[in-house]
Every structure is written in C-alpha cells, then in structure tokens.
C-alpha cells in the first residue's frame, strides 16, 4: 500500500531505448504491473487493424483447399493506418452493417494462372491503395500458394476492420514482452555470513539451484555470481533469513513491442494509448451523467472535498 501511495505521487515516465519501424523498446518508470498489463493487453487485443475477413473463391484448382487458402490469406498483415478512420463492418452507417462498402471494407482481387514462381501477397490487387499487404514493396512477398501448370486461382478477398480479441489475425503484435528493468537486488549480510563455517557456506550455496551464489575459493566468502539476472522471487531458505536481504524494485519495466507490419511500432503504442484514453474518457461521460441527474450526490462529494 505504501508502495502504491509512493507511486501515485509520481507520474510514469518513459524513455525509448531503441526504435525501428516495426520494433520499439522503451523503459517505463514509476508505474505498476497493472498499468503495464493494461498497455500490453490493449496493444495485443484492442488496437484495430485491417485483415482479410471474407474470401470468395471463384476458381481454385491449386492443391490447397479453399479453407486452407483462406487461412493463409487472413494472416497476411495489411497496412492498417487507415483502420482508425474505417468503420467496423457491423456498425457501418453507410451500408447498414452489410460490410461491403468502401467505408468499412477493402476488396482485394487475386487472379493467378500457373505463374512462374509462387502466388504471393504481391498478387493481391487492392481497391484502396492505402491498404496493402505490408510487404508489397519488398522484392519477395509472402507466399500464398504454388501453382502447377494448368492450375488456376481466382478469388476476391474482403478485408475488414477488427480487433485481436475477436481473432488473432487482427492483432498487430508479433511479439511483446515487459519485464522488470532492474530485477531485485540481493545483498549478503557479510557479518552473519562469516559466522558460518566453510562447510555450512557450501551447503548454503548448494541450496540455491541456479548457481546464484558461489564460495570464492580464495577468500572463502560467499559471492553473488549472476548479478542482475534471473534471481528474482527466489524462495528464501528459512535458515537463510537475515543472511541475505532482498530489495525488490518493481516499478520500472522494459517494454518490447514488435509488430506484424500492420502498424508501425510507435503508431501501435500511440493507438493503444489513445484507446486507453478513450476508455478513461468514458468515465468522464459517467461524471456528466451524475451532474445531470444526481446533483445531490455530487454535492456530497463536493462537501467532502
């Protein structure tokens, strides 16, 4: 509780460690796990992107079945900067939720007939030039299927806006992680340690499985071998109490974000924060509601303040 109170006084601060188009690594300081979780969650599940949602196959004589083909298509990341401006197809006012208008969908066409090489994401012809397979300008696209002589593939794919909570294809995140920046610190109480015999020290060291400590062969002192790595939250031997002290530092996190290519990593973070903001804003709306309808309650709150 005390820790939380301390944190509350601080505002989270962040510092970018590394930034590339699809990769972002930053340090978030002065916050709690719950906030980190919220951010992670929104980034994976709630930032909308565009992905192929419906595939209408006209001819398919390739060796892949229709559903397998659709499965491959839906995981091609599409550039989704437009996603925020688009409607969810079910909520589209333009087409009454049918999901085929230009405001809520992007149509791709693919027609290939025994081409040299593979059918790749570059063969997808878009109806909206700003929504493209993310690797459209790469020399090689993402392979969809290989065709044998005489085989043919014609299809129409309709991409729609969605979020990762519904299906993982809409998740812009490829990999993400958040870990404590500086894991807990361990200090050995040298005075107490010296009271142990060498045999006891060795025993004590052996009781930690991951070679955390070592007995220095020269000084016969117990030393920490792997400072700063992998010894967080280790179980303390009851006998060891007092011999070492563990200082936990759990308010700084390293954040790694890697996207599929649908969004830039920085864009993703911004979008995620915007969504978080919008979610918090909904409480403002709630406040207005109280002001309008329950003045008495607000008065009470005011008087308390």
């Amino acid at each position: 509780m005390e820790r939380l109170l301390k944190l509350n006084r601080l505002m989270p601060r962040w510092k970018v460690l590394e930034s590339r188009s699809r990769f972002l690594m930053f340090v978030l300081e002065g916050t709690t796990e719950s906030f980190v979780r919220v951010l992670l969650r929104i980034m994976t599940e709630e930032v909308p992107t565009i992905a192929i949602h419906e595939v209408v196959i006209e001819t398919n004589s390739s060796f892949l079945s229709d559903s397998f083909l659709a499965q491959r298509l839906r995981f091609i990341p599409l550039t989704s900067d437009l996603a925020n401006l688009m409607y969810y197809s079910t909520e589209c006012p333009n087409c009454n939720g049918r999901g085929y208008c230009h405001l809520c969908s992007v149509e791709f066409r693919l027609s290939a007939k025994c081409v040299a090489g593979d059918v790749t994401s570059k063969d997808l012809v878009t109806s909206n030039p700003s929504v493209l397979p993310f690797d459209f300008f790469d020399p090689t696209g993402t392979a969809i299927v290989k065709l044998k002589p005489g085989e043919e593939l014609t299809l129409k794919a309709i991409a729609r806006k969605g979020i990762g909570k519904d299906h993982i294809k809409w998740s812009p995140l490829a990999a993400t992680s958040a870990k404590y920046f500086c894991p807990s610190d361990i200090r050995i109480n040298e005075e107490l340690m010296e009271t142990l015999t060498l045999e006891q020290k060795k025993q004590w060291v052996a009781s930690y499985p991951t070679d955390l400590f070592q007995v220095d062969p020269q000084t016969q002192k117990v030393v920490l071998c792997r400072p700063g790595n992998g010894y967080h939250n280790m179980p303390l031997n009851p006998e060891a109490r007092g011999v070492i002290e563990v200082f936990e530092k759990k308010d700084t996190f390293v954040f790694t974000v890697e996207t599929t290519g649908a969004l830039k990593a920085s864009q993703l973070l911004m979008n995620a924060l915007a969504i978080l903001k919008r979610k918090l804003l909904s409480f403002r709306v709630l406040e207005d509601h109280f002001l309008d309808h329950d003045l008495a309650g607000i008065d009470k709150l005011d008087s308390e303040n």
């Binding site: 969650r41 990762g164 993982i168 998740s171 990999a175 870990k179 404590y180």
Partner: peptide, 11 residues
C-alpha cells in the same frame, strides 16, 4: 493468448 504466461526476455 493475452492471458497466457509470457517470457520476460523474449516475450
């Protein structure tokens, strides 16, 4: 996926 445990280093 989001509720699965994840590795701190590799994510």
């Amino acid at each position: 996926d989001i509720d699965m445990p994840f590795s701190g280093t590799t994510g």
